[in-house]
């Protein structure tokens, strides 16, 4: 199949018409509102490879429907996401309230599993197998590796104020103070960006940061993994199989 391998899932969250799609469009195709649209049929899912030094990280960028009628379903979307870009319109204070809502949602979702795993791995110092059995017996629902996958790969939050160009043109349009947003971002441990899809201001920086963070986290994860001795086990597994047959 001709699908591009995606390393990290990135979800775009935010009220409708805050410019999630434009942001992606600007980043991937370097254009704003005007064509040429001939070669894309949809901007809802984009796989974008990013060069980081010698490595290439492919981000799978998921656009989500911002309408409140789909709010209840939003958790389906950010399951397994490595990064969430929570967007709001700098000129619309209601969109900032919605952004707060999403941040809360995201944190809810992660915290529980994360804490459990932290205890299992680092305090009780369990092995992966043991953790797996434990988790599968806890609720019998989600599978071991799915949980591990979700939990070990923390979903980073990026707060993004859009339509910066409107502010630069007319300062009175700004509804959310820069420092308020900055404070909020710090409080939730997020990175804060103010972007303009029209001028392209800060857009590349945002996505580059996402990819960079992912890469660093992945590196950390790798070294952690060898800490719980997964690698060693697998080798002997393979070895013994070949000899048994």
């Amino acid at each position: 199949m001709s699908t591009i391998r995606v390393d990290a899932k990135v979800v775009m969250l935010g009220k409708e018409s805050v410019g999630k799609t434009s942001l992606v469009e600007r980043y991937v195709h370097h254009r704003f509102l005007v064509g040429p649209y001939q070669n894309t049929i949809g901007a809802a899912f984009v796989a974008k490879p990013i060069q980081l030094g010698e490595k290439v990280v492919t981000l799978g960028i998921w656009d989500t429907a911002g309408s409140e009628r789909y709010e209840a379903m939003s958790r389906i979307y950010y399951r397994g996401a490595r990064a969430a870009i929570v967007c709001y319109d700098l000129t619309d204070s209601s969109s900032f309230q919605r952004a707060r809502f999403w941040v809360k949602e995201l944190q809810n979702c992660e915290e529980v599993i994360e804490q459990v795993l932290y205890v299992l791995y680092h305090i009780l110092k369990w092995e992966t197998l043991k953790v797996g059995f434990f988790l599968s017996s806890v609720n019998n629902g989600p599978r071991l590796h799915t949980i591990l996958f979700v939990a070990l790969q923390q979903c980073k939050i990026y707060l993004c104020g859009t339509k910066n160009d409107l502010i630069t043109a007319d300062r009175s349009l700004r509804q959310i103070d820069y420092h308020d947003a900055q404070d909020f971002a710090e409080e939730i441990g997020a990175q804060y960006f103010e972007t303009s899809s029209k001028t392209g201001n800060n857009v590349d920086e945002l996505f580059h940061k996402v990819a960079e963070d992912y890469n660093n986290a992945a590196f950390q994860f790798m070294s952690e993994e060898s800490g719980v001795d997964l690698g060693q086990k697998k080798d002997s597994y393979f070895y013994s199989c070949c000899h048994n047959n």
């Binding site: 409708e16 894309t40 949809g42 901007a43 809802a44 656009d63 429907a65 309408s67």
Partner: peptide, 24 residues
């Protein structure tokens, strides 16, 4: 199926579909 939906939206709106169009 989704690709067809995307191109249907594109033919109607003459711009790439966002998730706000696609999900409904």
């Amino acid at each position: 199926c989704c690709k067809h939906i995307f191109s249907a939206i594109r033919s109607t709106k003459n711009e790439p579909a966002s998730a706000d169009d696609f999900l409904p």
